[in-house]
């Protein structure tokens, strides 16, 4: 039973622009899947459909046996079990770091303040930011903010994690501190779907790579195969551009 299963997903913006074309793939428990492709290829859209942040017009998505697309699904409950990390962190600027981490635990999971705080401190320690617990997001660097954002997702005890270009808004010197946390997470067996251009990260931890272009899944292959002999011309072109330097 896959953790995430995506079948024949179609999405339009308006009536003319088709953002996703018949996308089908799945992610097994404990698997790390990297999604890459040129900008505008639909990879961010695809990952946001998994917790229904983006509605779809056709197809079916099932996460941990819960049918996302069914109108009967309790979406807040489902989303609480799927961790998500955004390109621009999206920490809540008016709340202290601890409150950023406690909000969902208390309001969605109904945990007590003490329980939530304890969990929050444990995860802050894990991403190396325990000392910053009482600060506000605006007082942290981009890399630190993104690590807090990862901790904010982890405190909810998610069954899987979605990363939407987690390092592309960061200054180069901060990328590694975030990737290190993600590598650590992957090693512990977290199920992860990661939209990224960091091919080094993909090589190191991904089990599979999905390549998208123009709303389609063009390639879906084990990591070594993808890098050694990409089957499509489009993937070859993309790789040659991105690996040039």
């Amino acid at each position: 039973m896959p953790m995430i299963s995506i079948r024949n997903v179609n999405k339009w913006y308006g009536t003319h622009f088709q953002a996703l074309k018949d996308c089908t793939t799945s992610v097994e428990p404990g698997e790390v899947v990297v999604v890459c492709g040129p900008s505008g290829s639909g990879k961010s859209t695809l990952i946001k459909t998994i917790n229904a942040l983006e509605p779809i017009q056709g197809g079916e998505i099932v996460v941990d046996r819960v049918e996302v697309t069914s109108p009967k699904t309790n979406l807040p409950k489902l989303r609480a079990r799927v961790g998500m990390v955004f390109q621009h962190f999206e920490l809540f600027p008016h709340l202290r770091i601890t409150d950023n981490l406690c909000l969902g635990q208390q309001k969605v999971l109904g945990r007590s303040r003490e329980e939530a705080m304890e969990k929050a401190m444990r995860l802050l320690d894990r991403v190396g930011l325990k000392d910053h617990a009482e600060k506000y997001p605006g007082q942290l660097s981009g890399g630190q903010q993104q690590r807090v954002a990862i901790a904010r997702a982890l405190v909810m005890d998610p069954v899987c994690m979605l990363f939407d270009e987690p390092t592309s808004a960061l200054d180069p010197e901060m990328i590694n501190e975030v990737l290190d946390v993600m590598v650590e997470l992957a090693k512990e067996g977290m199920t992860m779907m990661v939209v990224t251009h960091e091919m080094g990260f993909a090589r190191k931890v991904a089990h599979r790579v999905i390549f998208m272009d123009a709303g389609e899944i063009v390639e879906d292959a084990p990591t070594e195969d993808f890098f050694a002999h990409p089957r499509s011309e489009r993937a070859r072109l993309f790789l040659s551009k991105i690996l040039q330097h």
């Binding site: 946001k48 917790n51 942040l53 807040p76 409950k77 489902l78 989303r79 609480a80 079990r81 799927v82 998500m84 955004f86 390109q87 621009h88 999206e90 920490l91 809540f92 909000l103 969902g104 309001k107 969605v108 999971l109 904010r152 997702a153 909810m156």
Partner: peptide, 15 residues
Amino acid sequence: LPRGQRMAGTAIGLT
């Protein structure tokens, strides 16, 4: 407010 704020709230399961 950035659109992502609403999304981030929704993503952690808030109504």
